[in-house]
Design a protein around this nucleic acid. Structure first.
Length: 636
RNA sequence: GCUGAUGUGGCUCAGGGGUAGAGCAGCGCACUCGUAAUGCGCAGGUCGCCGGUUCAAAUCCGGCCAUCAGCUCCA
């Protein structure tokens, strides 16, 4: 009888009879694992747990604890949902139903939209399917047969999917009970493994993500192998919602957005403190790195935008206006202004690189459905800079910006991921220059050893870009920093510098932002800290809380002393009990509360209550000032 | 822009064809208080906007606007 050698995850080698199944191997490792296994990786390929092995291989058993295991689990749940929908609404056409980062969805085509009560019915039917505990069975089918079958069942979207598969592709179906779905798999052993699930939302989604296609109905859900995990998930979602910058922005009185100006945020005094702290820090760090600051106008003649290519490639996003019968545009980007400034003088190669920074206010017409608090607005301030340089300086400059982004994000404790966005369809310039620019960015990333993902076709219309993405409280990612390499604008505007040879040469441009938009960055910041900003960023660093009205004079004195020391301090003058004032300060997430009563007034001290720790005892006023200074000095 | 949901005092929300309700916040008064809500009182709303049905609309219907989730699009 033939034996095969199986190498397990830890490097352990075991021998099994040919034809052994993965679930048998899991059972051999431990009983627990055989119960929890949802799939397995064989030589790096994910397989059904019931698959048989005939050759020597490496095996890794996957459970719900593995990301890939979770995806299999969720994908299987989407099949269960599709089965339930088909049972209840046989006329519905199936599109696709993949797992996503957290959960799964399935897209359905149905004339009427699903109602909340219908979702509940679907959930009940899913529970029934799970109780019936059908096994997931794989069936490999020849292409022709698959097509005939899907046509017979009138599943036009599935037919389209099969037609798009290469001629020689393996086509497989998975069956559970009476339901069968085109699917590459793999799947969990049976529907009974799903112990808890919930359909979370309903939304429209275009077939194949193309807005020219029909809009389908997408039902989102989540599922787990153990019931308490669902409760944990729901609690986590609730917690995440509490960090929402739109909610906290209101509660902490940082900003507001009104019906009168959708997408045009108003910054309140406390929000402006945060804003100014960020821009002060930005200016200081940029000065150190050889940047000069400029300011260019918000409205410029339309002719400029035609020359820059914005008219042709970006006008859908632009606002236009007339001045004295002439056409003008509100700037959606700062680059043409920066370019005009470069052109006001001639430049020697000795001056390069020239780094011109600008906190530029730009307006963009975003579709109404995409506006989102401070994260996606129609007017925002970019911490922009344009670097004009010789081709030989490209790599150093890109690396300089990458380092700067990393330096900034680390200050705030942000983790980020990097994408390289390549040439979009609607763009200008020769393939050759695009190729050159893209590989320059790529080279810089590789030199930094920075992991990145390629985002095909997502570059700016004038050049490829490196994007830095940050996560919000719900795990949605937002592009913040970006570095764009541009050979086109210098060409269009006939930018030159005089080289060592005395001849005119063409400079290259980098467009870059670090925060991205100050608005968006503040949004991210609010969610990251859940509104509890570190002392250096807190709009109010300390609040003086007098025990009773008797202590008001001393409290004023303390406040004055702290103000003089440059600390952002407030005094709670209301005639309330100390517990009440503490509660309020705590809910406003102020880092320090300074309680003053008879004791403190007597010996010139304050009782310090720290946001995270509670009462830490009495300190002299000077000592408290020193404490704050030592925490904030490196940012000022 | 598309699909679905939502829109009631500053905030959170209840109500639902017969002249608007709570809690918190605000204001006033009393208490002068030691580490997460003192008590009493007062004031505050054309129920998103416009139109229709009706003797009567916050409530039913239609349109629009905004918000939320997602799609598409992007810092």
């Amino acid at each position: 009888m033939d034996q095969i050698k199986v190498t397990l995850k830890g490097g352990v080698e075991k021998t099994y009879t040919k034809g052994v199944t993965l679930i048998e191997i899991a059972g051999d490792i431990s009983r627990k694992l055989s119960k929890e296994a949802v799939a397995a990786k064989v030589d790096g390929v994910i397989k059904d747990i019931g698959s048989k092995l005939y050759d020597d291989c490496q095996v890794e058993i996957l459970t719900f604890d593995d990301e890939e295991g979770r995806k299999v689990f969720w994908h299987s749940t989407s099949h269960v949902m599709a089965q339930a929908v088909k049972r209840l609404f046989p006329e519905v056409k199936l599109a696709i139903g993949p797992a996503i980062d957290e959960g799964f969805y399935y897209d359905f085509d149905r004339e009427e939209s699903f109602s909340t009560s219908e979702l509940e019915k679907i959930e009940k039917e899913m529970a029934r399917i799970i109780a019936e505990d059908y096994a997931f069975c794989r069936e490999d089918v020849p292409r022709k047969e698959a097509l005939d079958d899907l046509q017979k069942h009138d599943e036009p979207y599935k037919v389209e999917l099969v037609q798009d598969l290469p001629e020689d592709a393996h086509i497989s179906f998975y069956r559970q009970g009476e339901f069968m779905d085109l699917c590459a798999g793999p799947h969990i052993p049976s529907t009974g493994r799903i112990k808890a699930f919930k359909l979370t939302s309903l939304a429209g989604a275009y077939w194949r993500g193309d807005e020219h296609n029909k809009m389908l109905q997408r039902i989102y859900g989540i599922s787990f192998p153990k019931k308490p995990m669902l409760d944990e998930y729901m609690t986590r979602m609730e917690e995440a919602k509490k960090r929402d910058h739109r909610k906290l922005g209101k509660e902490l009185d940082l900003f507001s957005i009104h019906e009168e100006g959708p997408g045009f945020p108003f910054f309140h005094p406390k929000g402006m403190v945060l804003w100014n702290l960020l821009t002060d820090f930005w200016r200081k760090e940029h000065q150190k790195r050889g940047y000069q600051e400029i300011k260019t106008p918000i409205i410029l003649n339309e002719e400029l935008w035609r020359r820059s290519g914005h008219w042709e490639h970006y006008k859908e996003n632009m606002y236009f206006t007339k001045i004295d019968e002439m056409d003008y545009a509100v700037k959606p980007m700062n680059c043409p202004g920066g370019i005009l400034m470069y052109k006001t003088d001639s430049h020697s190669y000795r001056d390069l690189p020239i780094r011109l920074g600008e906190l530029g206010i730009v307006h963009r017409h975003e579709l109404s459905g995409v506006l989102h608090g401070l994260m996606r607005v129609r007017c925002f301030t970019q911490d922009d800079a344009h670097i004009f340089m010789m081709p030989s300086q490209i790599e150093d400059e890109i690396i300089g910006v990458i380092d700067l982004v990393d330096y900034f994000y680390k200050i705030f404790g942000f983790e980020y991921n990097v994408e390289l966005s390549t040439r979009p369809e609607d763009s200008m310039g020769s393939d050759e220059l695009w190729e050159q620019a893209t590989s320059a960015l790529q080279k810089a990333l590789e030199k930094k050893g920075m992991p990145y993902k390629i985002n095909e076709g997502d570059g700016a219309f004038y050049g490829p870009k490196i994007d830095f993405h940050l996560k919000d409280s719900l795990g949605r990612t937002w592009q913040c920093g970006t570095i764009q390499l541009d050979f086109q604008m210098p060409e269009r505007f006939d930018l030159t510098y005089i080289g060592a040879d005395g001849e005119k040469h063409r400079p290259v441009m980098i467009h870059r932002v670090i925060f991205g938009s100050i608005e968006r960055f503040i949004g991210i910041l609010i969610e990251h800290f859940a509104g509890a900003f570190p002392v250096w960023l807190a709009p109010v660093q300390a609040r003086v809380l007098p025990i009773s009205e008797k202590h008001m004079d001393y409290a004023c004195k303390v406040k004055k002393r702290l103000e003089d020391a440059g600390i952002r301090v407030e005094l709670d003058e209301r005639n309330e009990k100390i517990g009440y004032k503490i509660r309020e300060a705590q809910m406003q997430k102020l880092p320090y509360m300074l309680i003053v009563g008879d004791k403190e007034a007597g010996d010139n001290t304050v009782s310090v209550r720290v946001r995270e720790k509670g009462d830490v005892g009495q300190k002299s006023i000077e000592e408290f000032i020193e404490d704050i200074k030592s925490l904030t000095s490196k940012f000022n």
